[in-house]
Design a binder for these strands. Structure first.
Ligand SMILES: [Zn+2]
Ligand SMILES: [Zn+2]
Ligand SMILES: [Zn+2]
Ligand SMILES: [Zn+2]
Lengths: 132, 132
DNA sequence: TTGCACACGTTATAGCATAACGCAATTGAT
DNA sequence: ATCAATTGCGTTATGCTATAACGTGTGCAA
């Protein structure tokens, strides 16, 4: 997916996510953009929808939040499943991928003749700093 | 986790999930139990909390739903990560696990000194019947 | 010009989850 | 037996997450 020129709202939402320390909920993004004229959740959700489509933002299903892609310009997303480690204490997110994991999962779905559309791998726990 | 005797509400919720064809949302469970005296979401959520703790029910993070464990009595959950394939057309869920996937993910977290608490693997797509 | 696609704004509503209070039953120690 | 702690339960209220439905304006191509 090639990323077209972002619109004004898409740029605002993306900038907020990029500058954030960790993942943000849609409503948190909304609050951060009230000064820029945002008034309603849909303004955020519509921008997020496009940013997700372009692959520059990821949705963390297990915490209903969104995060800027940590590998911009990388082509990893086109040939692999993205995985996340999420610290439940400080909110830090690590994005990674593992071809062997991808391969095993895709072997399994192939055996089941299952047609995958979107795969979620999220590990919640404590990062090194917080576990100490 | 050994499963103690379930309470009345826990039994009702679990029975609904066991008899269901696929995953159910908490509010769908609530509706199915109104005839049995359920009036409020908390009655469902409190039962689910225990059932999840006992490991007899799983939560599907990507679709905000709950499903009865497909491997009752199995000890797989104690030494591996559970994965799900969810058909977005018919709602059918396949629960499986793959030691190699577990191993690779745990290798990764060990390398990062990340302390995992709960891992989610969910593949959304189309089952064989629905993809045809 | 006309039709279409798209971004945007707004209001309302739907869907998911928990806080906070109080009561009753159970358990386990004194 | 009594008291305290724990647990389950019921209820009301609230908060968080997400989308439906309607209308506006703009740019572009047929
Ligand atoms: Zn990414
Ligand atoms: Zn941390
Ligand atoms: Zn299971
Ligand atoms: Zn299906």
């Amino acid at each position: 997916m090639t990323t077209p020129q972002l619109t004004k709202n898409q740029t605002l939402v993306f900038d907020v996510l990029e500058k954030a320390e960790g993942p943000l909920s849609a409503y948190t993004i909304l609050d951060k953009l009230r000064d820029h004229g945002f008034r309603a959740p849909l303004q955020v959700y519509r921008a997020l929808e496009k940013l997700l489509e372009y692959g520059v933002v990821h949705r963390l299903e297990s915490i209903n939040s969104f995060v800027a892609c940590a590998h911009p310009g990388d082509d990893c997303h086109s040939h692999g499943i993205v995985a996340f480690a999420i610290c439940e204490s400080c909110g830090q997110v690590m994005e990674f991928h593992d071809h062997e994991v991808d391969h095993r999962l895709m072997e399994w779905v192939r055996g089941q003749k299952f047609k995958p559309e979107k795969t979620t791998i999220e590990i919640r726990g404590l990062c090194e700093a917080c576990a100490a």
